[in-house]
C-alpha cells in the first residue's frame, strides 16, 4: 500500500473504533468495551481487518488521548473507554489532521 493508502486505512479503522465507543456512551454504557466488543464493532464494515491492525489503531487512539485503557481484574482483560477529548473529536466529525502522527498534530 502507498503511504497515502496506509493513512486512509488507518483513519478508517480508527473511525470505526471511535464510532463504536461513542455509540456505546450514547446508549448509556459507561464501563467501556472489552476486546471482543471492540472487534465486533468492525462488523459494521466490509473491509478485512486483522487483530494486529485493531491493536495498532487502539494504541494510536490511546496515545492521542482519545481513548483510555483499563485493566479489568474480573475478566482478566483490558477495557477501552472514550475520553472527553475523544467525544469532542467525534462531535467535530473527526478532524484527523489535528491528531495524526503523520502530520504531527494533536487535538486542540
Amino acid at each position: 500500500m502507498t503511504d497515502e493508502a496506509s493513512i486512509t486505512r488507518s483513519r478508517h479503522l480508527r473511525r470505526i473504533i471511535l464510532s463504536t465507543l461513542a455509540a456505546a456512551v450514547r446508549g448509556g454504557v459507561e464501563f467501556g468495551l472489552d476486546w471482543g466488543a471492540v472487534r465486533d464493532g468492525f462488523r459494521i464494515s466490509r473491509i478485512s481487518v486483522s487483530d494486529d491492525e485493531i491493536r495498532v489503531a487502539l494504541a494510536e487512539l490511546t496515545g492521542d488521548g482519545l481513548l483510555a485503557r483499563e485493566w479489568d481484574e474480573q475478566q482478566a482483560g483490558h477495557r477501552w473507554t472514550i475520553t472527553a477529548a475523544g467525544l469532542d473529536f467525534v462531535r467535530a466529525r473527526m478532524p484527523w489532521q489535528a491528531v495524526d502522527p503523520y502530520t504531527g498534530g494533536r487535538p486542540e
Binding site: S19, T20, A23, A24, V25, R26, G27, G28, A37, R43
Partner: peptide
C-alpha cells in the same frame, strides 16, 4: 444496512442500561 449496523451498539447499550 450500514447505518443500521452503526446504531446497533447504541441500541444494545440502551438495553443493557
Amino acid at each position: 444496512a450500514y447505518r443500521a449496523a452503526a446504531s446497533r451498539i447504541e441500541q444494545t447499550a440502551a438495553e443493557a442500561r
